[in-house]
Simulated scan of single mutants.
Amino acid sequence: MAKDLIVIKGSRDGLKFYFNTQEGSFEEIYQTLVHKFQEAKGFFEQAKYIIDEKNDLKEEERKKIEALFILHGMTRQEINHKKTENSRAAAGIDTNEETEVFQAARDAVLIARSLRSGQKIYVQGDAVIRGDVNPGAQVSATGNIIIFGACRGSAHAGVQGDISAFVMACKLRPTQIAIADKISRAPEASSPKDEQVYPEIAFISDQQIVVEPYISSKHKAANA
């Protein structure tokens, strides 16, 4: 199976680029990067970039890649690793390398895939998942979490204490749901007749997490 020559992950510091120099030549990597910029149509403009150090790029090859970044309006981000780790730890977020970290450029980060068991996502901002959050997967966000699929894993909105945050899913059946410092579980469907067929929203009301149908939610009306 073909390997990805370039992997891009968002973080609170910027967009981190991983170059697979073990399985692709520099020319292949460079042309793949050119193609990504052409497909993005301005998406990377004004973004900050970080090049992962685990590669075999020569100095002149790195400079050529950085020139391409600059050509498309990007700037290099210098990282204070200690500050980054401390801020995530203060929010109660597991800082191991298995957690993908995303920084919202404007209002939200779109994750256009499902999360499988063991995957962890942390978003600085609102998280929009275009897929399912499966059992064993975790998604955390400083803002809201919106899932266009089923939520059967763990979801934690407002991780830095935002009590106005919410979690919404087309099928809300998480193993655990948390908003700010409140933790709860969604009720299990007791029979096929009770199986959820409409979006639901979870939010804090009267110091506890409330789950309601999104279409008739008081929270929706209050925040419209």
Rank of each mutant, 00 (worst) to 15 (best):
D4E: 08
L5W: 02
S11M: 12
S11K: 09
D13H: 08
L15H: 10
Y18I: 04
F19D: 05
T21H: 12
L33P: 05
H35C: 08
Q38A: 13
E39Q: 14
F43M: 13
E45R: 15
E45D: 12
K54S: 12
K58M: 14
R62S: 14
K63I: 14
I70Y: 09
E85T: 15
N86I: 11
A89Y: 05
N96F: 06
E98V: 09
F102N: 15
F102V: 10
A104Y: 01
V109P: 03
I111Q: 06
Y122K: 08
G125I: 08
G136S: 04
A137I: 01
A137E: 07
A137Q: 10
I145K: 03
I147W: 00
A150L: 01
G153N: 05
A157Q: 03
Q160A: 13
G161Q: 12
D162Y: 05
I163P: 10
I163V: 11
S164W: 01
C170T: 11
P174A: 00
P174G: 05
Q176S: 07
I177F: 00
A178T: 00
D181I: 06
K182D: 07
I183W: 00
S184T: 03
R185D: 03
A186H: 01
S191P: 02
D194P: 06
E195S: 14
I204G: 11
Q207D: 15
V210N: 06
V211S: 03
Y214F: 15
K218G: 15
A221M: 11
